[in-house]
């Protein structure tokens, strides 16, 4: 009986404490919300954002050519929507990956010009369109490289295994900014005289080298998760080593690694912002250069909140897209 009342007392005191705590937190949240709303509407000066929207999107791309990056971003967004809806027609579904890969040459063509379009030098690329280009390009190059490295690390050839391991481990031990810095300052030193690669492509090269090591580890995790019996079943059907890798191992490893690969993609999208301190004017770089403009001096909070929202929106969108893809490709646990 005594124990019973003690228990009740304890429960009561916990509930009382919990209730008071909740009330206090709600009060703080409420005050914070009112304060923030007040600031957002009355104190903040959003001109630094509203007057410069085209700059955030396209950087210093020639004004009469802005339709080109715009067209590219629109095509990417509509492809995302199509992917999200998940078309029922089989041929449409099968051509989706190809369409995604095709957006890359399309983007490069639209940004750089040629073949009927006026050329635009890469130093005029900027803003969100440059951020997206850096992300997509590096990702699409890093994926096959990562797959090769993962296979290399699993290889039976000791030399290939060692080399892949050394590459992956040392790349993962180094800060990204050091690799990007290597890309900007050191690559020119390793090229023959007269050969030059411009800043954007050097950045993409460095991002690719860096991300491929991380992708390799994610895919290796996927490879290791495939039961050995899958390989046996495939070998029994007479498939050779290459066919087993191509038809059985890689597709399954990619599906298993998809959540991890999504995180890499989101991380890469955020990390392209590092180029802002290494000489490219991508999304964050635009924000920095606007803050250096006397007209908008001191408008840090507005710019940062705006940029954070754009990054947040895109990253969340990427996560949603990937989760959708995951659901569709899911290998449900077979009832074994």
């Amino acid at each position: 009986m005594i124990k019973f009342t003690r228990n009740i007392k304890r429960t009561l005191s916990i509930n009382l404490f919990n209730g008071l705590l909740t009330l206090a937190i709600l009060l703080i949240i409420g005050l914070g919300f009112i304060f923030t709303l007040n600031w957002l509407i009355f104190s903040a000066n959003w001109k630094v954002v509203t007057l410069n929207l085209p700059l955030y999107a396209f950087g210093s791309f020639p004004v009469d050519q802005r339709w080109r990056p715009a067209l590219w971003i629109i095509s990417l967004l509509s492809l995302s929507v199509i992917t999200l809806i998940g078309p029922n027609r089989k041929w449409l579904r099968k051509s989706l990956p190809l369409a995604w890969i095709a957006t890359l040459p399309l983007g490069i063509y639209l940004l750089s010009g040629g073949l009927g379009l006026p050329m635009v030098m890469s130093r005029h690329w900027g803003g969100l369109s440059l951020t997206i280009l850096l992300t997509e390009c590096s990702l699409l190059f890093a994926l096959p490289l990562g797959i090769f490295l993962a296979l290399g690390r699993q290889s039976e050839l000791p030399l290939v295994k060692t080399l892949s391991s050394i590459y992956i481990d040392s790349m993962r031990a180094v800060p990204l900014i050091a690799v990007l810095f290597f890309g900007q300052l050191l690559i020119p030193l390793f090229l023959p005289i007269g050969v030059e690669i411009d800043r954007v492509w050097r950045a993409i090269f460095a991002f690719t080298l860096f991300v491929s090591a991380y992708i390799a580890e994610d895919i290796r995790g996927g490879l290791q998760a495939i039961p050995n019996t899958q390989i046996e079943a495939a070998a029994t059907l007479g498939l050779n080593q290459f066919q087993i890798t191509h038809f059985i191992l890689i597709p399954q490893a990619l599906r298993i690694a998809l959540p991890a690969l999504t995180n890499q993609a989101i991380g890469l999208f955020q990390n392209t912002s590092l180029m802002a301190i290494l000489g490219l004017i991508e999304l964050l770089g635009i924000g920095r250069s606007l803050l250096a403009n006397p007209e908008f001096i001191g408008r840090y909070i507005e710019v940062y909140i705006w940029l954070a929202s754009v990054y947040w929106l895109f990253c969340t969108f990427m996560a949603v897209l990937a989760r959708h893809l995951e659901k569709r490709l899911a290998i449900q646990k077979t009832n074994i």
């Binding site: 955020q270 912002s273 590092l274 802002a276 301190i277 964050l284 840090y300 954070a308 947040w312």
Partner: peptide
């Protein structure tokens, strides 16, 4: 979600400049 879906560099600039 706020921390993980925005770039660290932006967060650092926020902490410093703001």
């Amino acid at each position: 979600t706020l921390i993980r879906q925005t770039p660290l560099l932006l967060q650092l600039m926020f902490w410093y400049f703001v």
